[in-house]
Every structure is written in structure tokens, then in C-alpha cells.
Design a protein around this nucleic acid. Structure first.
Length: 839
RNA sequence: GCCGGGAUGGCGAAACGGGUAGACGCGAGGGACUUAAAAUCCCUUUCUCGCAAGAGAGUCCGGGUUCGAGUCCCGGUCCUGGCACCA
């Protein structure tokens, strides 16, 4: 342990000692409660949230600190503007990351995580964040996950949580089910293993019910555009139509009744229709065959006896095939069922095929294939020699029967051809009229489809909150009564997952055996735990209410503090976490538990930090360990340096060499302030620059332009130090306030030494320097003089002077005048900026 | 393939609604202080030619609009992030 040193004025000469200053103020903030937010009494509440970290064993990553520091500066600035700011922090400590690491090192996660959290807390406190640590939380704490389970029950109550047997993404290495979002190009996001397809009973949340709202609300949010766009793409709205194709000679085929997809998604024996989803109903005249997904429930019924063996072989292969080769290999394969359906537009019979390029999860699991105008259908038709018909031609084209050498997919500049009475219409108009007609005849209807899937929240793992459900032989699926929460995660010695697909909790018999809460008979608990993203889908609601134990969140505090005013985090969570937390907020709003339906009013994604031009990674061995830098340079220097690297929303290139420059700046500030005098008057030129700097920094901070704010302060520092003179107190005192958001310890220390904190006050309660436009105004303007658009020099004229004066000054300068050969044809004058003489 | 973001000195980067390109910082070169080094301070630093004054070129490449383009428009190259048979 380093002993705390309290430098006395006599030690000023020794210079700036960040270690001493920082420890001193961290201690004081703690004892004085400087960073404590009075949630009940605070005025103009401002909730500055940062994405909470996963407490890894490696300790805090610079990326974390980059995010937190950016948020901290924003929060401190808001406080200095008179807001009561709440800046909480916690740990997202459940989940596969932690569990896998625990497995690797052979320690139980319940023993490992608290150690990691302690280490994180130490590092975070050392970095000088304005966090109110009284509201710290961890998702692994039963007092927290009790309410995660409660949240599950709210969804269950509302019919938004359901269980189904489903094809899921199975990672053979991590031995668990992955959400679609966790599968990257058919590979496990975490370990990179090829993801396989498995069928398991899983709990899902009906996020698809909210697809339209999740999409529409985006327009109202003050978020980074890139993030909104990522969400829009993920939700993937497609406008189109569902069309019905009747199977031909059905009786003959099945010898029995007909089957169709009902409202519930189940097949009923009313009619045997094949429903397809298409975004191009205008091309229905060109639909020359149908394709069903191999898992389509009608496959069996439609397969003729001659085709039975081939179809069986194909569907079997597709079922076994892992998701990767199915999705990545684009070579078209398929098999003919032997049956035909009638194209409702042409009334012609068309063959029904099965192919794995059609996915059961999207649309209706069946498509009408229009090889002339869809690339995939075109490829398939080529492989199996199916007819390709042109039904759209470039507008104005007369060659309506020209063979297609590739699919013509441009719907913007096309008109319908070979489409009966619809020929000649534009694609857009054709869509409308064809859907209208088919709808009238009971052959279709307009439909909107989303790519978003329901959220699978089951995890066959150990390290998560148990899903609060009990299965009883007589009562069926019974939710755990709220009074019985939390369902505590038992300490299980052997927490390893295995490839049975059954959770490790299934081995804890004494835990899962319970009496049914309804009938009292012997029953068993659900042994799956929930997805980590459920933990983080509501944590922002818990912070203000972290010490409340009779509710997930206190209604009064929540009303006062939420939604979150400013949220900062990485764009890696653009679709997962941000979408899920929006969804849960909407559900709670619909349940009448919240009075807002969007959790984050403003969100900004910070950029990524690379190092010496390369991505940071453990394998490269170039990961920045914040401890080393804080130790060597001080937290204030490190914070300021991180913010100086580059534009906050773009990230930056971390270079060890460059930190010294920031430290030099703080050193100079330190000595300039301590050497400043109170005698005489401040210099007018310096004061002008000061007010220009106040203006610039005040404008840059809310825009997250931290790098330019720092540059402006450095520039001002250079002005202050110009020449032999010592700075006047009035010239540097406001600079201490400006710099405080970046270097809070240093600023507190200087503020105290300037005599402002005699009564235990903080610079963060002293407000923000007031910008005085009259002091900032320049009286001379530098005007660039161009001759024929080429800059030939500059002239000084009084601010507000007109073209005549500028011209006179320009002509008085021989180096400019020599280029002016004759009378200018035209003179362009931009006040305060430029004079251009066109010859 | 589709959708984003980007390309500016030796390096990280600035540049308001077109209006002096390179602020700020690093590095480098020179100088002061020192027995010496570190630290600190001062000067120089886009490139080419020139002793200099100065001149010319210059924001990925090729066109265009404009008195004037890093910024706007058209076409292309490269880098980077995300999604990926979504009908």
C-alpha cells in the first residue's frame, strides 16, 4: 500500500505528484460523499449511464475505461451545469464468459467472480470516476437476479414467454444453445466453432410481437445514426404479400382431406394450400415452380410415392447438416416432390420442389420461385433446368421475350411484360393491382414480414439465474410464485456442461425436486438458466432502486430518474443488448409498470481503440493494461490522454509515446496556476483567448468532441505561458474549472490551493465558468486575399470593416499588389474571412 | 453480395453552412541550461527549388460545378466495421 501524502504549499516547488494528489482526493471524495447523488432531493436529475462491464479475470480493459471516462466527462459537465447527476456502475457477471474462464482455470465461478469484481472495483476507483458506489450492483447477486426472474414472470404472465421445441444453434465446443445474434457467419461468436443444428425445448420471448414498434420508435430517439441503422437492418422489415397456391389433384395425391397453415401456425385439414411470402407479387406470372423448406410440414403430404426415397434422403441430410454448410455453401441443391400446384395468375400447373435455400424460420417456409427476377431462383432453375420466364423488362424495352442470362432484379426501372392485363404497368403499380386482385379472389393478402426472430432465452448452462418455472404432472407448467423468489442458483460442484444438451442443474436433484406450488404434489424445477442478455436488459432500472428489497424498482425514484438521459457504450451492442432492453422496457410499459417505453433518450456509441495501428488482442500481446499507465502517469493524465487520442465516436490509436504530451500539459497547468499572481490586472489579450476557449470547450463537451476541447485548452495554455510574465490568477482559474472534467483530482487540488475549498467544498459544486462574448470579441480581423482564387497573402483590418478597407489594405501590400495586373473584373468579399479579386 | 464508416505531413489528428489546409500533440532537427545525462525552456519542421526574398506543387485516383472544393456532384481504387440464401 502506498501511504497517502498530503502535499503542503511548501512542497509546491517539488511539482505535480499525481499519485499523491489522486489518492488524497479519492479518499476525500469517499469521506465527504462528493460523488453521492441525493436521489430523492436532487434537482434537475440527470442519469448518465455507461454500459456495465463483464468483470473478466484479466481486469479492466482500456476499452472499458475509454467508455467510462467519456461518460464521466459528460456527467461531470452536466453536474457543473447545475444538474444532479447520477452515475452508477455495476457488473454483468453472469454468463458464458465467466463460466468458461472458470472452467479453464478450474475454479468455481462463485469463488472467482467476487475476486474479479474486487479487482475491477479497485481499478475503477483508481481512475477517478464520479460514480456513486452506494448503488453498485452485480447481476449475480440474488438480490438482483430475484428481479430478473420476476421480469421473466411478468413476460410469462402476459403470454410473451413460451416454450417450444425448436431448431437451435448449438455450439459443440461451448456445449450450449446460442441466440441467432451470437452466431456470426455460422460460427460461434465466442469460440469460433462451427455451429450445429439441434432440436431442444426452449423458452422464448415474443420479441417479434414488438417488431413494428421497435422499428417505428427508432425515429423518435436521439441515438447514433449507425446504431439505429443496425437495429433497422436487424429487425429487417419487408413489405410484400402472402400468396396462396392450390395443390393440383390433391385428392389423388393424399387420398384424403386437405391441409393448410392456420392462424396458429399449425396445419389444419381444411384445404391444402401452399402459402408463400414474396416481396415481388408483381412477378407472380413468372413463378414457374414452388420451393418448400425441407422442414416444411407439407413435405410429407406432397411427396408422391415415386419421389419418396429421394425426398426422404434429401430432408434427412438437410436435418443433419450443420447450420454452417447449409447457410454458407451457396450451391443450390434440391429435390422434386412429384406434385404440382396451380399458379393463381397463369392457372398453369407448376412443380413443387424442396430445397434448403428456403428457410423455415422466415416467411411461411415456402416461396414462389421466379427465376427470371431472383438470383437464387435463377441459379436453382439453371441447376435443375426449370423454365425461366421474363415478366419484367427495362422500361421502354420492346424485346419482351429476350432470354435472360441473369436474373433481372431491378424493380426501380422495370415494367411488367408477359403478365396478362397487367403488362405495361410499372413494378410498383403492378404490385398493387396484382395483390388487390388476388386478395379479391382469396389468393393472397398484403403482409409485412420481419427477419427478427423470437428471443431464445434458455441456456443449458450453470452460471445464470435459474428460469423460475416448475413442472408438475398434474398442473403442467407452473410459474414460481413471486413470493418464492429468488430461485437461488445452488452451489454445484460439477458445473461443467455436457453434450446431452441438458443443464448441469439437472444433476442437482435435491435442488430441482420441489413441491408444486399449486397442488403440492412432487414436481421438478426448470433446470435451464436464462440468457445473460436478460440480466442486462433491465439493469438501468435497478440502479436508483438498488437498495429497495420489495420491488424491482421504486415507482417514485423511477419516475424521477428515468428514462436514462445519456447512455454511452460500444456499438458491439447495437443490436443485442440495446434491442432487448428496449423490448423489456416496452413490455413493462404495457404492463403499466413504467410510464415510458424507451429506456435511453440519448445514446452515443464510442469508437474503438487500437494500438500502434493494430487491433488489440491477447494473442498479439499488445493489450494495454490500465494499471501500468495509471501507475506511471497518473489517472488524470491517462484519462485526458484517452480522450485526446481522436474523435470520441470514432476511437483512436493508442501510442505510448504520445502520453508524455498530455502530462506536460498538466504539469504546465500545475505550475502556471501555482505561480500565478493576484497583483495587477489580467492581460486583455489573454482574457480574450480565455473566453474564446471557454466558448469552445463548452460547445465541444456536449458534442463529445473531447479531443478538440483538450486541444483548445492546450492552445490557451500556450498563450498564457507566452513571454516572461507570470500568469494572472484570473487567467488560469477558469482553466482549472474547464480541465476538471478531464483531470478531476488535479483540478480539485489546484482549486483547494487557490483557496476555494476551505469549507470542504468541491470544484464540482462550483459551477462552470461564464462565457462573456464581449471579452471574447476580436477587434482586428485577418482577411485572406486571393487573386483569381489563389491565396496571395493576408491583411489586417478592423472587425466590421467593409470591402473598401480590405481592398485598400490589400493593394497597399506589394507582395499582393504585384499579382493584380489591371482592374479586377469582379471582387468577392466575405466579411471577416476573405477578399478575392477576379481578373 | 448487401448495408455502414473512412482515406489529409514522418505519426495521432484539426478545419463553422464551400472561404488562409495541416490547429493541438507526438516524433525529428537545432539551440539554452548542465562537468555530463535526464528533466525543463526556446526556435524550426507538408513537399520541391532557392543563401534569401520568394516561387511552384499539395487533402486516395480521374472528371465536373464554382470567383474559390479536403468539404458539393459523377465515376473508380484501397482500407475498415456489421449482416449474410430473409424470398
Amino acid at each position: 500500500m502506498t501511504e497517502t501524502i498530503h502535499p503542503t504549499p511548501a512542497e509546491d516547488a517539488a511539482g505535480y505528484d499525481p499519485a499523491a494528489v489522486e489518492l488524497k482526493w479519492q479518499e476525500r471524495w469517499e469521506t465527504r460523499g462528493t460523488n453521492h447523488t441525493d436521489l430523492a432531493a436532487g434537482v434537475r436529475p440527470f442519469y448518465a449511464l455507461m454500459m456495465f462491464p463483464y468483470p473478466s479475470a484479466e481486469g479492466l480493459h482500456v476499452g472499458n475505461l475509454f467508455a467510462f471516462t467519456g461518460n464521466d466527462i459528460y456527467g461531470r459537465f452536466q453536474r457543473l451545469q447545475g444538474h444532479t447527476v447520477f452515475e452508477p456502475l455495476g457488473y454483468d457477471a453472469f454468463g458464458i464468459h465467466s463460466e468458461n474462464f472458470a472452467l479453464k482455470v478450474g475454479t468455481h465461478p462463485a469463488d472467482l467472480i467476487p475476486k474479479n469484481i474486487d479487482n475491477f472495483r479497485r481499478q475503477l476507483k483508481r481512475s477517478g470516476l464520479m460514480v456513486d458506489w452506494r448503488h453498485e450492483l452485480s447481476t449475480t447477486d440474488p438480490d438482483y437476479y430475484k428481479w430478473t426472474q420476476w421480469l421473466f414472470l411478468q413476460l410469462y404472465k402476459r403470454g410473451l414467454a413460451y416454450k417450444k421445441r425448436a431448431a437451435v444453434n448449438w455450439c459443440p465446443v461451448d456445449k450450449t444453445v446460442l441466440a441467432n445474434e451470437q452466431v456470426i457467419s455460422g460460427e460461434c461468436e465466442r469460440c469460433g466453432a462451427k455451429v450445429e443444428q439441434r432440436f431442444l425445448e426452449q423458452w422464448f420471448f415474443r420479441i417479434t410481437d414488438y417488431a413494428g414498434r421497435l422499428l417505428d420508435n427508432l425515429d423518435t430517439l436521439d441515438w447514433s445514426e449507425s446504431t439505429k441503422l443496425a437495429q433497422r437492418n436487424w429487425i429487417g422489415r419487408s413489405e410484400g404479400a402472402e400468396l396462396v397456391f392450390r395443390v393440383q389433384d390433391l385428392e389423388e395425391l393424399t387420398g384424403a382431406a386437405t391441409i393448410a397453415l392456420g392462424e396458429t401456425g399449425e396445419f389444419t385439414a381444411d384445404t391444402m394450400d401452399i402459402r408463400v411470402f414474396t416481396t415481388r407479387p408483381d412477378t407472380v406470372f413468372g413463378a414457374t415452380y414452388l420451393v418448400l423448406a425441407p422442414e416444411h410440414p407439407l413435405v410429407d403430404k406432397l411427396t408422391t410415392s415415386e419421389q419418396r426415397d429421394d425426398v426422404a434422403a434429401y430432408t434427412k441430410r438437410a436435418a443433419k447438416q450443420d447450420v454452417v454448410s447449409r447457410k454458407v455453401s451457396k450451391d443450390k441443391t434440391g429435390v422434386f416432390t412429384g406434385s404440382f400446384a396451380v399458379n393463381p395468375a397463369t392457372q398453369q400447373p407448376i412443380p413443387i420442389w424442396i430445397a434448403d435455400y428456403v428457410l423455415m424460420e422466415y416467411g411461411t417456409g415456402a416461396i414462389m420461385a421466379v427465376p427470371g427476377h431472383d438470383e437464387r431462383d435463377f441459379e436453382f432453375a439453371k441447376v435443375f433446368d426449370l423454365p425461366i420466364v421474363r415478366v419484367v423488362a427495362p422500361t421502354g424495352s420492346h424485346d419482351t421475350h429476350a432470354p435472360l442470362h441473369e436474373a433481372f432484379t431491378d424493380s426501380e426501372k422495370g415494367q411488367l411484360v408477359n403478365s396478362g392485363s397487367f403488362s405495361g404497368l410499372s413494378v410498383a403499380e403492378g404490385k398493387r393491382q396484382i395483390v388487390d386482385l388476388l386478395a379479391k379472389n382469396g389468393h393472397g393478402r398484403p403482409v409485412v414480414n420481419y427477419r427478427l426472430h423470437d428471443w431464445c432465452i434458455s441456456r443449458q448452462r450453470y452460471w445464470g439465474p435459474p428460469i423460475p418455472i416448475i413442472y408438475c404432472d398434474t398442473c403442467g407448467t407452473v410459474p414460481v410464485p413471486e413470493k418464492d423468489l429468488p430461485v437461488e442458483l445452488p452451489y454445484v460442484e460439477d458445473f461443467r456442461p455436457d453434450d446431452t444438451g441438458i443443464s448441469p442443474l439437472a444433476r442437482a436433484e435435491s435442488w430441482y425436486r420441489v413441491n408444486c406450488p399449486t397442488c403440492g404434489a412432487q414436481a421438478r424445477r426448470e433446470t435451464d438458466v436464462s440468457d445473460t442478455f436478460l440480466d442486462s436488459a433491465w439493469y438501468f432500472l435497478r440502479y436508483p432502486s438498488s437498495d429497495i428489497d420489495d420491488a424491482a424498482f421504486d415507482p417514485t425514484l423511477t419516475k424521477k430518474w428515468l428514462p436514462v438521459n445519456s447512455y454511452i457504450g460500444g456499438n458491439e451492442h447495437a443490436v443485442l443488448h440495446l434491442l432487448y432492453s428496449r423490448f423489456t422496457t416496452m413490455v413493462l410499459y404495457d404492463a403499466g409498470l413504467l410510464d415510458f417505453d424507451e429506456p435511453y433518450t440519448k445514446f452515443r456509441a464510442h469508437g474503438m481503440i487500437i494500438r500502434e495501428g493494430a487491433k488489440m488482442s491477447k494473442s498479439r500481446g499488445n493489450v494495454v493494461n490500465p494499471d501500468e499507465y495509471v501507475e506511471r502517469w497518473g489517472a488524470d493524465t491517462f484519462r485526458t490522454y484517452l480522450m485526446f487520442l481522436g474523435p470520441y465516436e470514432e476511437g483512436g490509436d493508442f501510442r505510448d509515446q504520445s502520453i508524455a504530451g498530455v502530462r506536460r500539459f498538466l504539469d504546465r497547468l500545475w505550475s502556471s496556476v501555482l505561480e500565478s499572481s493576484t497583483t495587477g490586472a489580467p492581460d486583455a489579450d489573454v482574457m480574450r483567448k480565455l473566453h474564446q476557449t471557454i466558448e469552445k470547450v463548452s460547445k465541444d463537451l456536449p458534442a463529445l468532441s473531447y479531443n478538440t476541447a483538450i486541444a483548445a485548452m492546450m492552445e490557451y495554455m500556450n498563450v498564457v505561458r507566452r513571454g516572461e510574465r507570470k500568469a494572472h490568477r484570473a487567467e488560469v482559474e477558469p482553466l482549472v474549472q474547464l480541465v476538471s472534467v478531464f483531470a478531476p483530482h488535479l483540478a480539485e487540488e489546484l482549486w483547494e490551493r487557490l483557496g476555494h475549498s476551505a469549507h470542504g467544498g468541491s470544484i464540482f459544486d462550483a459551477g462552470w465558468p461564464v462565457f462573456d462574448a464581449s471579452l471574447a470579441a476580436e477587434n482586428q480581423a485577418t482577411i485572406a486575399v486571393q487573386v483569381g482564387g489563389k491565396t496571395r497573402g493576408t491583411v489586417q483590418i478592423p472587425v466590421g470593416a467593409g470591402q473598401e478597407e480590405a481592398l485598400a489594405a490589400a493593394m497597399a501590400d506589394p507582395t499582393i499588389a504585384k499579382f493584380v495586373t489591371g482592374t479586377p473584373r469582379k471582387v468577392i468579399f466575405v466579411p471577416g474571412r476573405l477578399l478575392n479579386l477576379v481578373l
